[in-house]
Design a protein around this nucleic acid. Structure first.
Length: 900
DNA sequence: CGGGAACTCTA
DNA sequence: TTAGAGTTCCC
């Protein structure tokens, strides 16, 4: 016995549930492998092949193999295993049904006749490929006629094994030496079978059935092997040939109030373009209002594409509706709330802990109110209705409940959709989801009935009022315990109480944090972390906030520490997908961030995106938090991490925001990769050039950015009718090659253009006139000053400190002439001779002092143009020139050339 | 080959 | 009757 070949298609299928894979027929069961058997070596390509009508004539190319490629074509192929010798292989088209039937379509091509293909396998070969199979599409009115002929022929020739015609016919599957003649009874059976089967036949899909016949002792091919059936082949011309698939959504969460635009990128697996089996469609729609505007906690729903014609649906993608409350306000509100009197409720028992809120478990009334339009390439389609419906359902109790959906709205022209899309609630397009009325609930099974009843409750909430109050009081009672005494002693046995949540889902621990009761928090955290079982310390409130989130939001260092010590789960996210680290990254101060980052495991969170696709570093950049950016970089965050939606790095974002200091910080301190690319192939320099920012361009160029880097935006269109004049430029390009756009292409102003061409950016002349008068010193004087400084041990270093440039000493030290470097930096930073003299006096370098006083008689006279630079630039350049914490130094000017 | 016009069917 | 979906045919 040979070992079983794990790659045999039929051995693998053994483990599958055939009902779960409708395309797989139970023929494909494992068989013993010691005799000869037929095996499909290469499956046919399932999509992208078009069935042809007779009137279209022959020669439209053969059915390709699954792995066929443009330059390396392959074809369906079968192999007779465990056998050497001649064989005959018969290929028939069968239906894609559990019980395969003969298909009315015909196989056409080289060795095809009467709709089937018969090939002789030469004794020297063991496998055989079918390079020229066409599928002839029977016309609808001929289906039963053709099918009947096909059945008769199959029966005559003994090729009716494995295809189900009629039980009485099917038993007559013997080996056939000579074509069988049919009795009238048999003809009648076949006739009615063909009429019956033709009614059910799906003309847009077929499978290939291969049957091999080995020669018997008389040389006739009568030893039939078990047939094998291929994967289904879908007619690419059939209107429903496309796969519905949501490839990407630009957002996966939104507010219950709806009206937020969502872009869906959809696969349409139908055509074969450049070896990719897909075309991307974009569908834009606005989220409908959720039926319950008072939603208390996030609820998960699903987005899916649904095609009206055949009810085909895509895989559902999750989407989260969250309540419309702002965190800060919420905390504020809770703080203001008066606390109940503990004594009143202390005896209220603790049995009923847990979640009372049950609205989320039910099904969803998702108003059928989607409208939108398609893009494909540059065309806009408004015939939303002709293609897809948008639908949604929600998982509840293990079943997905789908809804009946309103007919899609169709716009009369593409300009009108802005009016109609705008405000669902206000006139015009009212049918966009204004009604709380559930429409056509497709609730099928009886077990959803209780949920149904609950849903009739207009608040969507199954919480019984008095129970809610009770729960709230328990949580607060616990909080009181914790505040007023040593919770460790009191609370250990009170486990149910600990899990109790108030009407906002807050536990006692949440409340402790909200009310800044650090000791209570510490006590509770200690108790709770000591308890086995339930994860009380990580319990989320209705906003999905853990106590840690609240502690970070309210900037309570001690509470955060206490919680971290109690080993909370730092990976938990709030309803926006933010971990506590994300929240800390958005704060003005970096202390929360640094505190969190001290805990090693937290560092891993730095590359986790929230639901908006942003990592902590991106959030810090967006919040213009230089100190937070530094904290993250110091903490080991990946400076080049990309956000999810477009692939921007922090440097892209900083550039986009025009934030020179952040960009400088990322480059200089974070050592960010200057030419990182977005999904679009754009570098930060593309962004800077696009927004016409001289400073950012100069910065990025100085950091080594490539001004010739092409992104994926075509620079022009080939048949450019819009612009007849600009063709000659790229005339000599290769056929079909369209270059991408470079930063240089994007430059609009001459300044930016020059900078990108490598011209020095003259900060001092164009933007930052020197404040100081160091320029008045001759180079000889400077030279002598340097010598005076070098002569004194530690001279220049002390001076650097005296001049507020101490932070740069280590950088200067790298230079061959640190003193010179110091003086240069001091000059460009706007230092004055007078202050230099003061500094020299301070460090006691009398020779240098006298030197300066001798050489420079009238320091006051040389006053420079005091057109001060804007504070933004000033600050940004600081970011470039100096290391962290230079804010204190008060230095404020350029020095760009020293930094790169 | 693939696009699409023309024709047919059906709700 | 008609629009849209599906089918067939033409280039």
């Amino acid at each position: 016995m040979e070992p079983i070949d794990p790659f045999r298609d039929d051995t693998i299928w053994m483990t599958m549930d055939p009902t779960a894979f409708p395309g797989i027929h139970n023929n494909n069961v494992m068989r013993t492998v010691d005799g000869p058997y037929l095996r499909i070596v290469e499956q046919p390509k399932q999509r992208g092949f078009r069935f042809r009508y007779g009137c279209e004539g022959p020669s439209h190319g053969g059915l390709p193999g699954a792995s066929s490629e443009k330059n390396r074509k392959s074809y369906p192929q079968v192999k007779v295993c465990n056998y050497q010798g001649a064989a005959r292989v018969v290929v028939q088209l069968v239906t894609n049904t559990a019980e395969p039937h003969l298909h009315a379509h015909s196989l056409v091509g080289k060795q095809c006749d009467k709709g089937i293909c018969i090939v002789e396998l030469l004794p020297k070969d063991s496998s055989i490929s079918f390079p020229n199979l066409g599928i002839l599409h029977v016309t609808k009115k001929n289906v039963s006629k053709v099918l009947e002929e096909r059945m008769i022929e199959a029966y005559r020739m003994g090729y009716n094994y494995g295809i189900f015609i009629n039980p009485e016919i099917d038993v007559l599957q013997g080996e056939v030496r000579m074509p069988r003649e049919l009795t009238d009874a048999e003809r009648n059976l076949i006739s009615s079978a063909s009429i019956h089967q033709s009614k059910e036949m799906d003309l847009s899909v077929v499978r290939l059935m291969f049957t091999a016949f080995l020669p018997d002792s008389d040389g006739g091919f009568s030893r039939r092997l078990e047939p094998v059936i291929s994967d289904p082949i879908f007619d690419s011309k059939a209107p429903n040939a496309s796969n519905l698939k949501i490839v990407r959504m630009d957002r996966t969460a939104g507010c219950v109030t709806g009206g937020e635009e969502v872009y869906l990128l959809c696969d349409k697996v139908q055509k074969d373009i450049h070896n990719h089996d897909d075309i991307n469609f974009a569908i834009v729609f606005k989220t409908p209002k959720y039926r319950d505007q008072n939603l208390q906690k996030p609820i998960s729903v699903f987005v899916q594409l649904k095609r009206k014609s055949d009810n085909e649906t895509s895989e559902p993608k999750p989407f989260t509706y969250h309540p419309q409350i702002i965190d800060k306000e919420e905390v504020q509100r809770k703080r203001q709330k008066t606390l109940p009197n503990f004594q009143d409720y202390s005896g209220a028992g603790g049995g009923a802990g847990g979640m009372f809120r049950g609205g989320g478990g039910g099904s969803l009334k998702f108003p059928p109110c989607i409208k939108g339009h398609f893009f494909q390439g540059y065309q806009t389609y408004n015939n939303f209705g002709s293609g897809y419906n948008f639908s949604s359902g929600v998982g509840g109790g293990g079943t997905t409940i789908k809804h009946a959906y309103q007919e899609p709205v169709e716009d009369s022209d593409e300009d009108s959709d802005s009016d109609t899309d705008d405000d669902p609630a206000a006139g015009g397009v009212v049918r966009i989801c204004a009604q709380p009325e559930p429409v056509g609930l497709g609730v099928e099974s009886e077990d959803t009935e209780p949920t149904e009843n609950l849903e009739l409750n207009t608040t969507g909430c199954v919480l019984e009022p008095h129970l809610a109050e009770l729960a709230g009081r328990q949580a607060q009672a616990l909080f009181h315990y914790a505040v007023s005494g040593d919770a460790r002693m009191l609370l250990a046995p009170q486990r149910p109480l600990m899990t109790t949540q108030d009407e906002n889902g807050d536990t006692g621990l949440h409340l402790g944090v909200i009310h800044s009761q650090t000791d209570a928090v510490r006590n509770l955290a200690q108790v709770i972390s000591g308890l086995p079982g339930e994860d009380i310390i990580n319990m989320r409130n209705d906003l999905y906030q853990t106590p840690l989130h609240l502690a970070v939001l309210t900037q309570q260092k001690e509470a955060v520490e206490a919680l971290l010590e109690a080993d909370v789960d730092i990976t938990l996210t709030d309803r926006h997908g933010n971990t506590a680290l994300h929240l800390a990254a958005q704060q003005k101060e970096d202390n929360m961030l640094r505190l969190l980052l001290k805990y090693k495991p937290v560092v891993q969170l730095t590359s986790i995106p929230n639901t908006a696709g942003l990592c902590p570093l991106h959030l810090a950049v967006q919040a213009n938090g230089l100190s937070c950016v530094r904290a993250l970089l110091d903490g080991g965050a990946d400076v080049d991490v990309q956000e999810i939606t477009c692939g921007h790095t922090a440097l892209h974002l900083a550039t986009e925001l025009g934030n020179l200091s952040l960009a400088g910080c990322l480059l200089l301190e974070g050592n960010a990769y200057v030419d990182s690319v977005t999904y679009n192939g754009s570098t930060p320099l593309h962004v800077a050039a696009g927004r016409d920012s001289t400073k950012l361009c100069a910065l990025l160029m100085a950091a080594g950015a490539d001004p010739h880097k092409e992104n994926f935006e075509p620079l022009f269109f080939k048949e450019d009718e819009l612009c007849g004049t600009c063709e000659e430029e790229e005339e000599e390009e290769d056929e079909g090659y369209i270059p991408g756009t470079t930063p240089l292409n994007m430059a609009t102003s001459p300044e930016v253009y020059d900078i990108l061409n490598g011209e020095e950016y003259q900060l001092t002349t164009t933007v930052v006139p020197p404040q100081g008068d160091m320029k008045s010193l001759s180079s000889d004087t400077k030279q002598e000053l340097c010598q005076a400084l070098e002569g004194q041990t530690g001279g220049w270093e002390s001076l650097a400190h005296a001049l507020g440039l101490g932070i740069l000493t280590s950088a200067f030290r790298l230079s061959t002439c640190p003193a010179r470097k110091l003086l240069d930096s001091y000059e460009v930073s706007g230092g004055t001779v007078r202050e230099l003299v003061e500094g020299l006096k301070h460090v006691g370098n009398s020779s240098a002092v006298s030197l300066l006083q001798a050489m420079c008689k009238e320091p006051e006279a040389v006053h420079t143009t005091p057109q001060l630079t804007g504070p933004g630039l000033c600050k940004s350049i600081q970011g470039l020139t100096l290391g962290p914490h230079q804010e204190e130094s008060g230095i404020c000017d350029s020095g760009v050339e020293t930094s790169f």
